[in-house]
Nucleic acid binder design. Structure first.
Lengths: 122, 122
DNA sequence: ATTATATTTAAGTATTTGCTTAAATAATAA
DNA sequence: TTATTATTTAAGCAAATACTTAAATATAAT
């Protein structure tokens, strides 16, 4: 059963139905995208993704740079890894993080917004 | 007092300090940006922003398109309005939402990701 | 084997989020 | 004025989030 909230004269029911259908048809795309964007849209994780995009770091590097506990960082990284934004490789006991190649396009696109705001001098 | 988690040989303390400083110097920019990105990175709000960017709608239009309650929609729109992503204008009893001109650049940049995924035929 | 190091995982908890329902505002129409 | 319509706001609540501390894993070094 479809609920209708709009009863005013001016409304364009046809257009509303069209958009409803379009959004339903693309629900998966919208959900996947909002998932990725929402994950990166967090103060800590935006910095983590930005850092990883600059160069490879390990978990305790992030902890020192952001002045946070190692488990807190690890749990943020896990979320990024779960949706495939980052991947890891081990060198002895150290685990390094990098942007997953297939996600570099979308990540770079979002990080463009950071580049617009800050100047990097490292 | 600064906490140090990394004690391994290989680490580059200078680089870590540089990045820590850089992120601290740009804390405001990162926070503002993650705020906006995080807000748009929500299933409902990504669709709302996308719809508003397509054309002007009122609250009950959104409610019908997304098949959600009017108060639920209104509260999402309020969040978008609070950070200045959208603005409103009233025509009699109806309140229409549009993208704030100064935020169009950033909104369009994020919505590019939607355009990459879906084809619009309305 | 034992110890140390790097990281993850689990359990606990306070805060935030996103809805619901009901009430409050605001503007129009009768 | 009174009723209707569009929207917002408030209160309540279940679920999700983001930390904490402690324990578990995994690898390396002694």
């Amino acid at each position: 059963m479809k609920t209708i909230s709009c009863i005013r004269e001016k409304k364009d029911q046809y257009k509303i139905d069209q958009y409803e259908q379009l959004l339903k048809n693309n629900a998966t795309e919208f959900n996947q995208l909002s998932n990725i964007v929402g994950l990166i849209g967090n103060g800590v994780r935006l910095k983590l993704v930005w850092l990883i995009n600059q160069e490879q770091f390990c978990v305790c590097d992030f902890a020192d740079i952001l002045q946070m506990s190692v488990p807190a960082i690890s749990q943020h990284l896990r979320k990024l890894k779960d949706v495939g934004i980052v991947e890891t490789f081990r060198d002895k006991q150290t685990i390094y993080y990098s942007i997953t190649p297939t996600k570099k396009l979308i990540v770079n696109h979002i990080l463009d917004l950071v580049s617009d705001e800050i100047a990097v001098t490292i």
